[in-house]
């Protein structure tokens, strides 16, 4: 929730003001929101499949374990339809509204996202074999690099100090063990 806030809730009389979030007064759908429709359809399909193939224990009463999943599945598909209608309308009116919404569909730095994701996966995979100290330092360094850190050696030093501080606080202060990994016995 960052960004500039332009809020004018002034002349609203006694009514609740719209809790306007950053990014515009009307958060209707925009063209990029087809992704949301796709997400909803995928979710609906997953729920429908899971509900249909569910093993229902014999003595489960009525309403059984399928009851609520069916409701949520239907809700998901209805919302997919509503969302699709909104996006279609936004696409049709794009000629008028395009400049206003283009800020929303700003270009994405997928490379930075990829580096953060890769660092987190590496952290997950290396946590047991390498231990907290090194894998968390790697995670810190990788994320920092993705977000524009350009002093590799200095950042590595910061990363190691941060992960060491966490390990100390947790094991010494709270008595919780974090995996020691290859450095087992070094302390």
């Amino acid at each position: 929730m960052s960004g500039t806030v332009e809020q004018d809730a002034g002349g609203l009389g006694g009514e609740p003001p719209e809790p306007a979030p950053p990014g515009g007064a009307e958060a209707a759908a925009s063209r990029g929101d087809w992704a949301v429709v796709a997400l909803l359809l995928a979710l609906g399909a997953f729920l429908a499949h899971g509900t249909a193939t569910m093993d229902v224990p014999e003595n489960s009463g009525s309403p059984g374990p399928r009851f609520v999943p069916v409701i949520v599945t239907v809700l998901t598909f209805v919302l997919a339809a509503l969302m699709a209608a909104q996006v279609a309308r936004a696409t049709a009116g794009a000629g008028v509204r395009a400049p206003e919404r283009s800020a929303h569909g700003e270009e994405t730095d997928w490379r930075a996202v990829g580096v953060v994701v890769a660092s987190f996966l590496a952290f997950t995979a290396l946590l047991s074999p390498l231990g907290w100290l090194l894998s968390a330092a790697l995670l810190f360094w990788g994320t920092g690099y993705a977000l524009g850190g350009r002093r590799p050696l200095f950042d590595a030093g910061v990363a190691l100090s941060v992960s060491a501080a966490f390990q100390l606080a947790f094991s010494a202060g709270l008595g919780l063990a974090l995996p020691a990994g290859v450095l087992e016995g070094a302390f």
Binding site: F120, T143, G144, G149, D155, F166
Partner: peptide, 11 residues
Amino acid sequence: PRHHLYAGITV
């Protein structure tokens, strides 16, 4: 610095 801040949050 922003990159250290968010790196710390990730950790």
